[in-house]
């Protein structure tokens, strides 16, 4: 059937995309194992739709499609949680990086290596950059 081909292609594509990210070894391994299990289960449910219905009936869910929906909800929530964590980690890395840059530049200015002027793309209030010779910066 055509739908089976479409779904199998989509699942294979997801498998490739998800496997390309990098993280620390143990988490990555666990994620890949879960992914492999998911792929097998997904492919099986496409090829033998009755299996899904039978599992659903065993655990007290009416239809296979409902079971799929519940699984999807859980997968989506865990995706939100992991991407939230990943985003906060990236944010704190960005902060550390930007702070280091700012302080390194400040140290150069304080030692008189570079002049204390705004960066090239810094906005100025209606006019060219105002550079003041700060008497306290020796």
């Amino acid at each position: 059937m055509l739908i089976q081909v479409i779904l199998l292609v989509a699942i294979g594509w997801v498998a490739v995309v998800l496997n390309r990210s990098t993280a620390d070894a143990r988490h990555q391994a666990i994620r890949r194992l879960l992914l492999a299990a998911f792929i097998v289960a997904a492919a099986a449910s496409v090829l033998f739709p009755s299996i899904l219905s039978r599992i659903a009936n065993v655990i007290g869910v009416g239809r296979g499609a409902d079971l799929l929906l519940y699984g999807l909800v859980i997968a989506f929530l865990s995706f939100i949680a992991t991407s939230f964590r990943r985003m906060s980690r990236m944010q704190s890395q960005l902060t550390a990086l930007a702070r280091e840059l700012t302080l390194a530049r400040a140290a150069l200015v304080d030692r008189g290596v570079v002049p204390d002027v705004a960066g090239p793309d810094a906005p100025t209030p209606g006019g060219p950059a105002v550079s003041s010779d700060d008497p306290r910066d020796d």
Binding site: A98, R99, L101, T102, L103, R105, A106, D116, A118, G119, A122, P123, T124, P125, G126, A129, V130, S131, S132, D134, R136, D137
Partner: peptide
């Protein structure tokens, strides 16, 4: 809005986050 330039002109030491 050019806050950094205003503060610098007023005599403060100004650091800028990128």
């Amino acid at each position: 809005d050019g806050s950094a330039a205003v503060a610098r002109a007023a005599g403060a030491r100004v650091l800028e986050h990128p």
